[in-house]
Each structure stands twice: as C-alpha cells, then as structure tokens.
C-alpha cells in the first residue's frame, strides 16, 4: 500500500474510534480531498468532523488550539510545509506553552500535519523542509513520516499523550509503497526496531548485522529512503556496510538507539533535506561529539541542502537538495 493511502486509512481509523478527533485544513473536503489526496473520502463519511477551512494558516491553527483546550483532538493539515511559518506564533507562543504555563491544568494536544520537501519542481516556496525551525521548541514533538513504520502505530501513540506534535510528511513518500519491515517484501535488508524512550521507535536498516557495520547514518523522511538504497548498493558493490537509523521522532531526539549504534560503528553521517547549518544535523553532531568524545573515528558528517532557494527547474533543484550520490559519497568517506 502506498504511503498516502496508509495515512488516509490511519486518519479514517482515528475518526472511527475516537470521537474527539477533528480534521481541519484547506481544501481537505471532498471532492478535492486535499492537495495530496490524503483525506480523500473522509469528509463524505465524517462531514461534521472533517472541515475545509478558509485560507488562513494562523486562524486554522488558532482554532485547533481552542478545540484542543476544550478536549478535542484536532489534526490540522497545512497544505505545504512552506506555510507553517504562518502558524509559527500559534505553535511557539500558545500551543506548545499552555501545558507548562498553566501547570498542566490544561493541555493543548494539537497535531499539525504538513507535506514537505522538494524533488517535484514546485519551486522556492512549495519545496522547502522547514522543520528545523520547529526543532528545540520546548514541549513540541517533531515527528517525521516514514515508509518503515505504520502511520497508525505512530498516530495511536501521539493521541495517547497530550504534547503537541508537528508531523512532517516528505511529499516524495506519498506515491511510494510502505515497506513491511518484518515481511518478505524486502528480503535484502535487515530491519530492526529499537523502541527507545520517547514512545516511538527508531527503525534500524542494514545489509549485514550491526557488528559488521562501520558507519551509522541518521536519516528521516525521503532521505531515509535514499540512505537505505545507498546502503544496499554500497554493500553489494563495494562491501561498505552502513547501518541506517530512521527515528520516528526527530525532536526531541531519542538518543538511546543512536548511541547503541554509534558505540559500535564509531562514525556518523546525518541526512536531512533542510538547509545546511543551525539544524538537525548540527545538533546531532554536537551531541554525539560530546557523548562520544575521543572515541569517534572521524568528525560527524552532515548532509543537507544548499543554503539557497530551491529552483523550480528540475536539474537546478537537484543541485540544491541532497541526492543519492551525495549521500552515498558521505557514507563512503565516513565508513573508512
């Protein structure tokens, strides 16, 4: 099953079993069913709880905050990650703060879903990965969509607790098939789950057992797919063995699974599609360098997008965002 359908089914299941769940977003109602068709069919079956809104991200997010304070579980679709800047004040100064500010007499468990990332030629303002600006906001969880973890598992955990969440969906994942990590779909790679401590697991992917791997790759979103493909090709063609770690939650980082891998490989590459610097990879590099001071074989390498706008022309876009070869080359260097 492709990811967009698995996610749509997840939202349907949540609507069915939890009357507090409400979906809000621009153009999410039928017949349009959302820009990426994730909510297709849901407004027909749940007309009161799946609502198309006016074009104002700040207002939608504010309404969701109010609903959450009143005990609902709003899930907002922000049509493109690029527009989350318009929600930023609601998220930073209101949604993420309420619980702590009022000593948890109230909670504000809003979930924002948003498609992010390039690769489709959508240009400078519809292709960005802006999640780095939300990392480190106290009491906000940032979770990344993945082909390796059933979205129903993820959303069930998110609804079982009361911290607000930004759920980032790389748009290249929508048409890709979910990977049954335990099944026969992919007999090539070894999949594992490290349950960690944040409530959401980290998926481990490698061609050979961890003890034979000489580099850990920490990646999420579409970068995780590219890294997993690179790990397989490098293993077959060059006998370079990498262990890919795909965290469900990218902030706060669940360090346990990462530490267990790096303790063996003693080398780390991070992969993200946000612009380079001041971001996820920088923070991970800083923390891992501190925790493993003196025992890493080489400095942590971070692969990220160029610090520039993302052009609409495909060939220029490919020069700005991390490609398969850039990721493979970083793994090659770090595996030595």
């Amino acid at each position: 099953m492709i990811f967009s359908r698995a996610l749509g089914n997840t939202l349907r299941a949540l609507l069915e079993r939890d009357p507090r769940v409400i979906l809000l977003g621009e153009d999410i109602a039928d017949p349009y069913g959302g820009a990426f068709k994730v909510t297709r069919g849901l407004s027909t079956d749940f007309p009161d709880r799946v609502r198309t809104t006016p074009v104002s991200e700040a207002a939608i997010t504010g309404i969701a905050a109010g609903l959450a304070l009143e005990g609902f579980r709003p899930i907002v679709e922000v049509m493109f990650c690029d527009f989350t800047t318009l929600c930023f004040d609601q998220v930073l100064n209101h949604i993420a703060k309420y619980g702590a500010m009022y000593d948890h007499q109230v909670e504000c468990p809003v979930i924002l879903r948003t498609p992010a990332g390039g690769g489709r030629g959508y240009g400078p303002t519809h292709s960005q990965s802006l999640e780095k600006h939300f990392l480190g906001i106290p009491h906000l969880r940032v979770v990344a969509a993945s082909l390796y973890l059933d979205p129903l598992t993820v959303f069930s955990q998110l609804l079982s607790q009361s911290e607000p969440v930004l759920y980032v969906e790389h748009k290249l994942l929508y048409p890709l098939s979910m990977v049954d990590a335990g099944g026969d779909d992919s007999p090539e790679l070894l999949f594992g789950l490290d349950s960690g401590e944040c409530g959401l697991p980290t998926v481990t992917i490698s061609a050979v057992p961890r003890r034979e791997c000489t580099v850990t790759v920490f990646a999420y979103g579409y970068g995780a797919v590219q890294a997993a493909n690179a790990a397989w090709d490098l293993a077959i063609e060059e006998e370079i063995f990498a262990e890919i770690l795909v965290p469900a939650q990218i902030a706060p980082v669940d360090w346990g699974p990462l530490e267990r891998s790096v303790a063996v490989t003693r080398s780390l590459v991070t992969v993200e599609e946000g612009t380079a610097g001041w971001g996820w990879g920088s923070e991970v590099a800083a923390q891992v360098s501190r925790r493993f001071f003196g025992s890493l074989r080489r400095p942590v390498e971070s692969v990220a997008s160029a610090r520039d706008v993302i052009p609409a022309a495909r060939h220029l876009e490919q020069q700005r965002i991390p490609g398969a070869e850039a990721i493979a080359q970083a793994i090659r260097e770090a595996a030595r």
Partner: peptide, 8 residues
C-alpha cells in the same frame, strides 16, 4: 547467515 554474505 543473517544478512548479506560478505567476503569475510
């Protein structure tokens, strides 16, 4: 073997 067979 669990996983890819290598030269080792």
């Amino acid at each position: 073997k669990t996983g890819l067979i290598t030269t080792q």
